[in-house]
Each structure stands twice: as structure tokens, then as C-alpha cells.
């Protein structure tokens, strides 16, 4: 009896997860390392800079962990009816698709284009699945870039392997040191901290995390926007706001989803977690 349980239970688990299309091999390797993607990203065209009509009073949106599958995410599609006139751009912080499928990247791009605001996409670990990088770069462009929207410097990082790699780490410091805008947002997929007890989804190399935090502090980054853990988390450390957005992934019907609105007003940057209507 015991032997049967020991043999059959793991087999059952393996077969049931195969049905979920999980790429188990990516527990042990990734087809493209972050250094390769970083080099390729530098040769790709980033999303263009955008302007903001009232630079003293505007807002922008963070959504994250959309996990678009079979071309559908009703929550992302409903985002446009939640926008207000001051919203100037959107930052989706990774895991745009569930399995890195070309058709899902195209569906994501089409939904975002239909919203009509500039958007600055971040690559997540799920976007790499099944060689998703080939599709991502073709449809959405680079995974690492620095651009601006009005007076906000936006630095997008590729942390989809939970590490920046040496080249991107140096590039980040260089970009931060050169920024001239009064506001700065860094967007990255992996959450730097564990939001709750027992949470396992977070960056694992804390020394790299501490090094990044010192850079953000030194160059006065306003917000670091992240995703990955699917759980909202906010903390302010040494003047830098670290915000993990709530996931937009569809688990079941009629779930209440949330998005983040960050508002710039009177020289202050603040955020709200808002229910998606």
C-alpha cells in the first residue's frame, strides 16, 4: 500500500501538472539568460518618449501579472473604463502572458493599443516560458530600456530570471546617474521583498537587492514598481517607495481585481490601490 502511494502519487502530480502546460524544465534552466537578452535589448527600439500636458498634475497606472492566456483577460480589457483624464501612461510590470505564446503577446499588444495611452511593458518570468523571449522582442521590443514620459524618467529592468546580470546592473547605475527629470520610476518584475510570511516568490539574491536599493536611494528614485508575488505590498525605505502591484490574473469568474494609480501633484508622488470597475 505504502509503495503504491509513493509511486502513484508523484506520477499523478506529474501528469496533472503536464495538463497545466507548466514548463517544468524551467525549474532547472532558462533558454535565454538575462545577459543575452540585455545585449539584444540594447539593439532594439524602445517605446518612444511621450509628453504630458500638465506636468505638475498628472497620474499614471500600474497593472501587473496579467497572465494573458488564450488571448483573453477580461480585467485588462476593462481597464480603459477605469481611467481618468489625468492618466498619462500605463506600466504593466511583467507576466503579461501565462506561457509566452506569440498569440497572447499579440492579444496583449492589441488590448493595450486599444486603451489609447502610451504603455511601458516589463518582461516577467512567465513571458520567458517556452522560448517566449523570441516572441516578446519581436512584438513588444526590448526588455530593458530607459525612456521618459514628460518629466518622469522611466527605467524598465529585465529581472525575469530574478537577477539583473553584471551588464544590466552597471547599466542601471549609469542610467540613474544620467537622469535629468525630477521624477524617476524603476519598473521591474521580481518583487524585492517577501510580502507575507511564507511567501516564496521574491528575489533570492539579497546582496544584489541591497545594491540596487542603495542605487535607488542615491539617485532619488521615487517609486520601484514590481509584481511577481501577486500580492499587494508597499513599504518606504530610505525615501524610496517599493510597491508590488496586485495581480490581474484571472483565477475564477467575478473576482474583484485592483490596479494602482500613482498621482503627481504639488511636487509629491503618491499612490492608491483602486478596485477595478
Amino acid at each position: 500500500m505504502k509503495l503504491k502511494t509513493f509511486v502513484l502519487l508523484p506520477l499523478l502530480i506529474v501528469f496533472s501538472t503536464l495538463q497545466c502546460s507548466i514548463d517544468w524544465l524551467q525549474f532547472f534552466y532558462t533558454p535565454y539568460e538575462v545577459n543575452t537578452r540585455f545585449k539584444e535589448s540594447l539593439s532594439l527600439t524602445p517605446p518612444g518618449a511621450s509628453s504630458i500636458s500638465n506636468q505638475n498634475n498628472f497620474s499614471f497606472i500600474q497593472v501587473t501579472d496579467i497572465h494573458l492566456a488564450e488571448g483573453v483577460n477580461p480585467y485588462l480589457s476593462s481597464l480603459s473604463r477605469n481611467l481618468i483624464s489625468t492618466d498619462a501612461f500605463i506600466i504593466p510590470t511583467g507576466d503579461l502572458t501565462d506561457y509566452g505564446k506569440r498569440s497572447d503577446f499579440i492579444a496583449y499588444r492589441d488590448i493595450m493599443n486599444s486603451i489609447g495611452l502610451p504603455y511601458f511593458s516589463v518582461i516577467g518570468n512567465h513571458d520567458l516560458w517556452f522560448k517566449g523571449w523570441d516572441q516578446y522582442k519581436d512584438i513588444l521590443g526590448p526588455g530593458v530600456y530607459s525612456t521618459h514620459a514628460g518629466n518622469v524618467r522611466i527605467i524598465v529592468l529585465d529581472s525575469a530570471n530574478d537577477t539583473l546580470g553584471a551588464d544590466q546592473y552597471k547599466w542601471l547605475e549609469k542610467e540613474l546617474s544620467m537622469k535629468i527629470e525630477p521624477y524617476c520610476i524603476v519598473a521591474s518584475h521580481y518583487n524585492l521583498f517577501s510580502p507575507v510570511i511564507g511567501e516564496t516568490s521574491q528575489s533570492t539574491n539579497m546582496e544584489e537587492v541591497y545594491g540596487m536599493m542603495r542605487m535607488f536611494e542615491k539617485y532619488k528614485v521615487n517609486y520601484v514598481l514590481m509584481g511577481h508575488s501577486h500580492i499587494y505590498d508597499y513599504r518606504k525605505i530610505n525615501g524610496v517607495s517599493y510597491l508590488v502591484g496586485p495581480a490581474m490574473k484571472k483565477y475564477s469568474a467575478n473576482e474583484q481585481k485592483y490596479f494602482i494609480r500613482i498621482t503627481v501633484s504639488n511636487g509629491q508622488m503618491t499612490h492608491e490601490k483602486l478596485p477595478l470597475l
Binding site: 524551467q26 525549474f27 532547472f28 532558462t30 525575469a160 530574478d162 537577477t163 511577481h228
Partner: peptide
């Protein structure tokens, strides 16, 4: 060897 990203199922070995 220590992989990065183990919990995120997108692993590269970086330590």
C-alpha cells in the same frame, strides 16, 4: 551552485 529565480520557474545559475 545557486540558481536565481527558482520559485519563479525561470532559472539561471548565478552563484
Amino acid at each position: 551552485v545557486t540558481p536565481s529565480g527558482f520559485g519563479g520557474i525561470s532559472v539561471m545559475y548565478n552563484r
